[in-house]
C-alpha cells in the first residue's frame, strides 16, 4: 500500500521479493519454537539434551503422549478447563447480552449513570479485585469448588460494554417495527436483537472462552484439590513434579495448546474483527 513498487501491476519486483522473504523469515521465527516443541515431545529423555546437535530425535517416542495421561490426571485437567471455560462463556454471554439490551434498547431513568458506573470499574486492575473476591468466595463457601471458579466470572462489565456497543449499531426502527408487529421486549430481544448481534456474541464468546481457558491467577489461588485443577494449574504442577522429564512436559503443553488453535483457525474471521472493533482487554 505504501510502496509505489508494490502498487505496480507487475507480479514480481525486487522489493516485493525482499518483503516476501522477510515475511517467511518472520513466519519461521514464530513457528520454529512450536516445531521444536513437537520434536522434544517425541524424543526420549536421554536424547533431549542432544537435540540441538542432532536436530531430530534418533528414536521417536510417541508413547510420551499417553504417558502424560498416566503420570498425572491430564484428562481431568482438560475436562475441568472445558467445563469451567464453557460454563463461564455461556453464562457471561447471556448475562452480558441481557444487560447490554437494557443499556442500549430500553430508555429508563438513571440508565446512563449506571452504565457509567459499569465503565468506571473497567479501569480497576484485576489484581485489586483478586484479594477481596478471594475473601468473598471464601465467605460464600465456594473455595476449592467449581462454583468458585465459575460464578465470579459469570458476569462481566467488559462484556456488557462490548455487546452494548454492538447493539447500538442495530437500528432502533427494527425494535419499533417488531413492537408494531406485536412483539414484547423479550421477543424483541430473542428474535430481533440477539440474531442481529450474533457476530458480537461470537466475538465475546471467543474472548471469554480463550481468556478463561488460559486463566491462571484465579484458579491458582482458588483450587487446592488435584481433581479441580484446570490445565494451566495442572501443567504448572506437572512441571514442578516431573520438571526433568522435558519430553512429557512438552507433550502436555502441546496438547493444551490445541484447543485455542482450533478455535482460532475456525473462528478467525470473528476474532480479528472483534479485536479491531476494540475488543481487547488490557
Amino acid at each position: 500500500m505504501s510502496d509505489p513498487a508494490t502498487r505496480s501491476r507487475r507480479s514480481f519486483s525486487v522489493p516485493r521479493a525482499l518483503g516476501f522473504a522477510a515475511l517467511v523469515v518472520l513466519g519461521a521465527t514464530f513457528t520454529a519454537p512450536f516445531l521444536w516443541q513437537v520434536l522434544i515431545s517425541l524424543s526420549s529423555l536421554t536424547d533431549v539434551d542432544l537435540l540441538t546437535r542432532t536436530g531430530f530425535p534418533p528414536v521417536l517416542k510417541p508413547e510420551n503422549y499417553p504417558q502424560v495421561f498416566r503420570k498425572v490426571e491430564f484428562a481431568r485437567y482438560f475436562f475441568n478447563s472445558f467445563f469451567v471455560a464453557g460454563w463461564v462463556t455461556l453464562l457471561q454471554v447471556i448475562t452480558s447480552a441481557m444487560a447490554a439490551y437494557a443499556f442500549s434498547r430500553i430508555r429508563w431513568p438513571m440508565r446512563d449513570r449506571v452504565f457509567l458506573l459499569y465503565l468506571a470499574t473497567l479501569m480497576i486492575p484485576g489484581v485489586v479485585l483478586m484479594v477481596p473476591n478471594f475473601a468473598i468466595v471464601l465467605g460464600l463457601g465456594m473455595f476449592n469448588t467449581y462454583w468458585g471458579l465459575i460464578v465470579p466470572a459469570a458476569f462481566s462489565a467488559y462484556g456488557t460494554f462490548l455487546l452494548r456497543q454492538f447493539m447500538l449499531t442495530i437500528p432502533t426502527s427494527l425494535d419499533e417495527a417488531a413492537a408494531i408487529d406485536g412483539a414484547g421486549h423479550w421477543r424483541v430481544f430473542t428474535q430481533v436483537v440477539l440474531p442481529l448481534a450474533r457476530p458480537g456474541l461470537i466475538v465475546l464468546a471467543i474472548f471469554t472462552f480463550l481468556g478463561n481457558y488460559n486463566s491462571f491467577f484465579w484458579p491458582l489461588i482458588l483450587t487446592k484439590d488435584d481433581n479441580l485443577r484446570v490445565l494451566p494449574i495442572g501443567l504448572l504442577a506437572f512441571d514442578s513434579t516431573y520438571g526433568r522429564e522435558t519430553p512429557l512436559i512438552m507433550a502436555g503443553s502441546l496438547m493444551a495448546m490445541v484447543p485455542p488453535v482450533l478455535v482460532f483457525v475456525v473462528l478467525q474471521k470473528y476474532l480479528v474483527k472483534g479485536i479491531q472493533l476494540g475488543a481487547v482487554k488490557g
Binding site: P171, S173, L174, A177, A179, I180, G184, L196
Partner: peptide
C-alpha cells in the same frame, strides 16, 4: 396502549426489515 394493541402498521424510512 402498546403499539401491538393499536392495530396499526408502519412503513419506516429505512424500511426496518429484519435482516436475518
Amino acid at each position: 396502549a402498546h403499539p401491538k394493541d393499536r392495530d396499526i402498521a408502519m412503513v419506516f424510512q429505512n424500511y426496518a426489515l429484519y435482516p436475518h
